[in-house]
Design a protein around this nucleic acid. Sequence first.
DNA 1: TGTACATCAGTGAACGCGCGTTCACTGATGTAC
DNA 2: TGTACATCAGTGAACGCGCGTTCACTGATGTAC
Lengths: 215, 215
Amino acid sequence: VAEALSRLEWVRPPQQARSRETLVRILDAAETLLATRSFDEVSVSDVVRHAASSVGSFYSRFPDKEALLHALQERFVAEASATVDAALAPERWEGASLAQILAECSALLVRAYRLRQGLHRTLLARAAHDPSLRQRGARVRGQLAERLRVILLARRSETTHPDPERAAEFLLEIALSVVERRALTSGAPVANLAFDDEQVVAELARALIGYVGAR
Amino acid sequence: VAEALSRLEWVRPPQQARSRETLVRILDAAETLLATRSFDEVSVSDVVRHAASSVGSFYSRFPDKEALLHALQERFVAEASATVDAALAPERWEGASLAQILAECSALLVRAYRLRQGLHRTLLARAAHDPSLRQRGARVRGQLAERLRVILLARRSETTHPDPERAAEFLLEIALSVVERRALTSGAPVANLAFDDEQVVAELARALIGYVGAR
DNA sequence: TGTACATCAGTGAACGCGCGTTCACTGATGTAC
DNA sequence: TGTACATCAGTGAACGCGCGTTCACTGATGTAC
């Protein structure tokens, strides 16, 4: 954890345990506040107050306010990357049918985005006008796509889609679009009917399975 | 058009032709500027300069800057609502198979969101933290869902989905999620592969058809 | 047809608030000898 | 073990910039008689 923090590109690395703890408190406070407010609605003073720190401390770590958001994304992306590698390791899914895998992936994504919905909402809203946020996000998703590609290619006999590589990518596009949209809108219904997490998992799985033509 | 403008809830209705034209210029200028910048990046001065108007004029129409965005959404929603009614009238689709309809709807949505991508990007990003924007958007989508429901119920024999009403809603959730995500990220690839509009239409149609189990 | 008056529309300089950022200073930690 | 010094870490009042908003004023349009 300590090493991970010193590798965040957007902060001057802490030299002592004390300042490392302060940095963690600042990041945690920011994430907490962003759960219910937009980045603009959260002032630097707000963050440091909740972190029991001070503006001076903040600016000795971060070049500016924007860097805070990037640091938060970096921290999250590092964790997400590890999760992806673990969850989608091909050997974890030996013997499983494609339909089973897709259902499981739906559940995984819905759960993952639910867990840190607030952070996701803010990051997604912000990414609309910040290419560097988009790019960092695309890296993890690229990794996810790669894993899916391997799984799908190994099971191409189970599908009717003519191009498994393209299928893997668009599969992900569908799943992420749905899940990210829900995070962005705090789960507000698209139209008239509201779906809970469980229903989304079920319907999404059905869609993905139908898309590749599995089962 | 004139009547429509006077019904925008967020502006004091213009009394003369001259001020009506000014209002239109302001709305158009704002939409143009929002095509490439975020709402925060566009100042009131920017808008009125591009509209060849003045800040004073602006504030005699709008109570505040926020109202401009709402007025833009109202104007757009009014147009979109008419388009939906025309495009999805049940009689337009007599004799068409469900698969054909879904393919056509995919094409329609992709085209519609492409046309005003910039406005959509800004509205979507903003809606993340503004429930009233979300709500106004949900009204048109509710209308769309209703149309889809009718179409789907009339063709329930062509589907394998156990609940056509739920299918209609989630169908829309998938399609809109994909298309809105693309608008929000200016069409940046989700992961490694970039899809152009034509490919998205094709893959999305395949997904929707697979989801309801048509053909 | 002309005049007086009311309301609408437009103008842009000036104001002021909020918030990001700086800075002068104090205290804590680590190191050299 | 103790002292001197350097660097790190922390503090919060004060600054200042940008931008939304106001306001005092001028000009245009419409109406009454």
